[in-house]
Design a protein around this nucleic acid. Structure first.
Lengths: 140, 140
DNA sequence: CTGGGTGCAAACTCTTTGCATTCGG
DNA sequence: CCGAATGCAAAGAGTTTGCACCCAG
């Protein structure tokens, strides 16, 4: 009934833990397949799902493109999404867990179990690029 | 250069305005095509994008499945996402726009332009269903 | 042994795009 | 008129699934 430990799962885990930032499933797939070319993308997806269900890695979703990202940090924290390049960064904001409004149903009967605070903006790298290109102001 | 007013765009607008709740693009497509069977799904997508860009309708995204929902309300407000059925509901929470932390770059250089506060939970209808089925507690 | 895991390809969902045609301003 | 908008179908991106085979416990 339990989970098995396979080499593929360990490779997936190690890839997430050593990846700087917040890799997508495809990022992880590329890292692993560069050394272990026979691994299947489906296996990576399945293992990422299993590992995050088991709490061994973090799962970060709900960005503009619907992509799911993974995280070597498993504790709750806020993320920022770069509107230019799609990069996901950690945001060190103390507000998040102050919103202690879970549990009681709202006026319309909606029962909140969790919340996410997501920031959107421009990451450092993209801001640098914009300065270099002299396109500081309005742009898209 | 400007936008044109077509019948399809008005149909799309009317469908969003008269739809109770937060329809997906496909919800809107189904409503319109039931009376106007020749409309194309691509046209609905294009018009929903144009209408929300023009601020005539609201756009609500960042939910678990990556689906985009539309909204007849255009002012900023919080949404709740039902983990059971995917329904999106309005959440009347005063916290959201109190988070006045835009504009200044963070310690790592990330420059925040906006944020979203998203709630997850169980909607009223799904809670009722669970009670009827006697499956109150742990489940999934 | 046995059923959870794997690899492959095909399927799926939501959305976008190319292109010829239509039509609003 | 002329370019924005349409309809259609095909392509995309990201993810999931069916199935036969494999291997960890």
């Amino acid at each position: 009934m339990g989970r098995r430990n396979t080499m593929q799962k360990e490779l997936t885990y190690e890839a997430v833990m050593s990846y700087p930032g917040h890799p997508s499933a495809d990022d992880i797939y590329r890292v692993i397949s560069s050394k272990h070319s026979t691994i299947s993308k489906a296996t990576v997806y399945r293992n990422l799902a299993a590992l995050s269900e088991d709490g061994r890695i973090g799962r970060v979703e709900s960005f503009a493109n619907g992509e799911v990202h993974y995280d070597h940090r498993t504790e709750e924290h806020c993320h920022g999404y770069c509107m230019r390049c799609g990069r996901v960064v950690d945001i060190a904001i103390p507000y998040d867990n102050r919103l202690n409004i879970e549990a009681e149903p709202m006026e319309d009967g909606f029962s909140i179990t969790s919340h996410k605070l997501i920031f959107e903006g421009i990451c450092n790298e993209c801001r640098k690029k914009e300065k270099e290109n002299g396109t500081e102001g309005i742009k898209d």
